[in-house]
Nucleic acid binder design. Structure first.
Length: 196
DNA sequence: GACATGATGCACT
DNA sequence: GTGCATCATGTCT
């Protein structure tokens, strides 16, 4: 299949994690598979900041097989399994700085019918408005773990500049004590496809 | 090897 | 709003 979008360069990812989490909003997330090309504009993200962030997998520098890619350079893919779902993160910060940005929701763009098929015929709005949902809709799996986001089959491309960004506490980390209140979740204000 | 846990989603009330 | 399926991963033994 021909590549129809130009991947963003690695320099795009080389910024402070909270900054990157906001910069990702409006970018086009593209996945190419044998079944076809699917894409969506990122509308919701969450930043996870390394050793001091109680909610991060890399809290207290916990370096395991799962978190290993977080210690690599920015712009790599960090996927992991949660219950029966795959969640997709963008690795941020420098070498040995285990930070990442979770992509929580996208706005469907290309390949909507394929995404509907992968999501058992659910309606447009329910296709990609959650981290597990968008991974399934785009066909993101653990096979993508550790690969660079700067080339197919999974990459980011230029999208649009969001008009207005909101922030608030992250979702689903109630057991993370003080970290549960950090306003490190970002979304495009008023967007129809934000998860909550 | 055994066991506890969860950055979720879905069905149900 | 509440309950729970379900399994990879991490930790302890």
């Amino acid at each position: 299949m021909n590549q129809v979008y130009e991947p963003l360069p690695v320099s795009f990812y080389q910024k402070e994690t909270l900054n990157l989490a906001q910069s990702l909003l409006g970018c086009l997330l593209v996945k190419e598979t044998n079944e076809g090309l699917t894409s969506g504009y990122i509308v919701e993200t969450e930043a996870y900041k390394g050793p001091e962030d109680r909610a991060a997998h890399s809290y207290r520098n916990r370096r395991t097989k799962r978190t290993e890619v977080m210690y690599k350079e920015a712009g790599r893919i960090y996927t992991y399994q949660m219950h029966t779902h795959t969640l997709f993160n963008v690795v941020s910060a420098g070498i040995d700085e285990p930070e990442a940005v979770l992509i929580r929701a996208i706005e469907p763009n290309d390949g909507v019918s394929l995404m509907e098929k992968r999501r058992s015929g659910r309606k447009l709005r329910d296709l990609t408005n959650g981290p597990g949902k968008l991974a399934k809709a785009l066909g993101i799996t653990m096979d993508d773990y550790g690969k660079p986001l700067t080339e197919p089959p999974l990459y980011l491309a230029k999208g649009y500049i969001p008009k207005d960004i909101s922030c608030g506490p992250r979702i689903g980390i109630e057991n993370s004590e003080e970290a549960r209140y950090y306003p490190w979740r970002f979304w495009i204000k008023g967007n129809h496809y934000v998860s909550k």
